[in-house]
Nucleic acid binder design. Sequence first.
RNA 1: GCCCGAGUGGCGGAACUGGUAUACGCGCACGACUUAAAAUCGUGUCUCGUAAGGGAUGUGGGUUCGAUUCCCACCUCGGGCACCA
Length: 847
Amino acid sequence: MKEYDHKKIEKKWQLEWNKKQIYKTLNKGKKMYVLDMFPYPSGVGLHVGHPRGYIGSDIYARMKRMEGFNVLHPMGYDAFGLPAEQYALEHKIHPQKAVEENVKTFERQLSIIGLSYDWSRKVNTTDPKYYKWTQWIFLQIYNSWFDKTKNKARNIKDLIYIFEKNGNKKVNAVCNNNVEIFTSKQWNLYSKKEKQDILMNYRLAYEGYSEVNWCPKMGTVLANDEIINDEFGNPVSERGGYPVLKKSMRQWFMRITAYADRLLAGLDSLEWSDHIKEIQKNWIGKSEGSEIGFRVVIADQLGKDIIDSNFIKVFTTRADTIFGATYVVLAPENLLVEKLKSKINNWAEVEKYIQDIKNKTDEDRTKNDKEKTGVELKGIKAINPANNEEVPIWIADYVLASYGTGAVMEVPKQDERDMDFAIRFGLPIMDEPLVDSIEITKKVSGKMVTKYKMRDAIFARQRYWGEPIPLKHDKDGIITEVNLKKLPLLLPKVKSYDSTGTGESPLAGVKSWVKDGYETNTMPGWAGSSWYFLRYMDPINTKEFASKKAIDYWKNVDMYVGGAEHATGHLLYSRFWNNFLYDIDCVSFKEPFKKMKNIGMVLATDGRKMSKRWGNVINPDEIVKNYGADTLRVYEMFMGPFEQSLPWSTESIIGSRRFLEKVWRIGAKFANDFSRSGSSSSLVRGPEKLFANEAIFQTLLHKTIKKVSEDIENFAFNTAISSMMILVNEMEKLENISIKDFKMFLKILAPFAPHMTEEIWQNLNENNSINKSVWPKWDKNKIQDEMLKIAVQVNGKVRSEILISKDIKEEEIKILVFKDKNVINWVGGKEIKRFIYVPGRVINIVV
RNA sequence: GCCCGAGUGGCGGAACUGGUAUACGCGCACGACUUAAAAUCGUGUCUCGUAAGGGAUGUGGGUUCGAUUCCCACCUCGGGCACCA
């Protein structure tokens, strides 16, 4: 064996592994599903930070393979979305073409790192064979409603049946807020369109409207972060500075809120970092409280006429403070405001306020530090049901229509925000005793309810590059589904990917598409990524998204690796879809990702994010060329804790390279012995030196095997590598280790440096890949040191050290300790108050 | 504002469940090999002190025989939410 020539070695083994398909996944054996979050293949190529997570999961997958698991470790692409569309616009090519180019770049960069994916299972969300099933799942969701009693999704046919049977009796289902549910007629008497509209309030995928930021000049919809304020505080587009308005747009929604409770409860069963669980928990935002009705009356009128049946329903988590409630505030959008119009004396003022609100951006409206605004609804009052006091009614934009009931009771004494508002508008402030929440709720005929902050998710984009939504609208507004047999509904060719200027998707400009009545919105980016982990199980199935057999075998992902930035997006949506698929018996498990590790970011040397803009990007190709893939892999794992963001340092990489070179040199010595003697007779050199250190070395070796095994299991790769460094430093000094021991070490290094260890391995007359060898087991009897060094403290300060054998008794230790010179010195003749011995660790003498 | 998390040498970081703080690596210094350099190897490297010894894990307190680890307050940084009643 000669020099460590990483270029030659890495190329050679990558070709060989490919040829022999050693990472091909079978469908039998003890299963282990190790998954990376699939990337969005962008045009700019990778920087050294991107592969870091892939390297970690690769090491894990490799160890699991060696431990005898049948490992599924695939890779694919999430390739629908805006960047590809914009890239296509700029370069005047089809987005599909852009995706293909980007995938190519990505795979070239990834292939040189030596990741052990089974590429035969590759998926791509933009492939019609894939998005056929995204569309199929969408239709299942569309055709479902959520039964609160059973706490699961059911087919919409069941709901129709209930309506037919029970007429207008209430159904315990999750449905839209503030919508008049049918109550007036028998189900059968409704028209087709009316039935459709009623059902739309229950479907888990439903059509609705939402306000978007609309820039008339640009003719596009803008995201919140694409909007800034001009010098007068008016919202304008970041690019160009054109005015931005609110516009109500037709959208599709997913009723994820139906699953709020299950998504929250499911977190307990997941082995995720507490951090991510916490973020999801806060996002779901469960709070328990009371719904209480405040009667509305005409102000200053004797007898206090009740205005028909109107109640202001407020939601509060502090019903106990109700005696201190001195006014109520409604959201300006609360439907009750419009209803009470005729009783409100200052309607002009109220209407103006509501209008002003509409022209504000969400960001403006919800800014915490701005002064509170509001208008009193004059001429009417509310009755506090606890004490029958008449209290004023206000509307204010800080009360949100979308949360709770869109109305709150205000208790200035108990709440800082209420206090601000009360002081600003001179509203009464009263100090009243607290009562029991549950009792008072009952007493005032309110009810205990649970609310969630989470909102339904918009499931539509007014863009071209996404999955078509497989629905048709006819001229009477009747929606029909695209027949399952006709899926996939292919994305049509368009002349221009530019927006239409009306805010609609470019699909609205395709004549035949519109003529056929197809939905012009496309699915959002998260559609395809919400179920891709299921497709890897059976990626070329044309009959089902994956066979029952494959799903039952692979089940959930065992280890999921990716960025923490998906905490409230992808990770919530895919849990939602998986729960849904569980309800309709398509999968046998509720939670898709049992364990998860979140990769930290690699920052540039300057501590900033790597970005073209800062010119601080490090290209992995360069590093692989100069130092080798194995060195890159070891260094990226050695940098620091896997989940932590760390600054890159090309200066420090040399340490990882030196470590591998040391291993190489030891390997070379063994290999040279082979070539000289042609046999294994000289495996153990210098036997005379061997035995003095043999036991100590054995202990170190087995401790290292144990540590590396456990550290890989926990994704603590940095400490695994440091323990191997210690072992190698020791091996280098000893120079008389057995080849058997050295091979054990090579195996635990193999997941980190697969190419180099393979080369050494096969030079040692092994014919099968080290990556398919059996993971070494540590010997329990060997990991215990024979002799232990114990620190001796006097009054908590280390004063001496003693060497004891591992089975020594406390009594014997005492005798030993008090013979120690240093101890005698420090203890002197003083009285011993306490003698503390922590076995194997420390002795503390208190005088 | 609220909710999480983190602060350890010149730098990245290590430390099991409260038990010798600074492992491992980078850098730096000196030495060996070399005509020389690189590479490699060896030694040293928290701080004050000649030493004995003292002081250091963001700051200040507390609990304990013993605290980077537990508790309280504060400071700084990072993340999440953001008028959620």
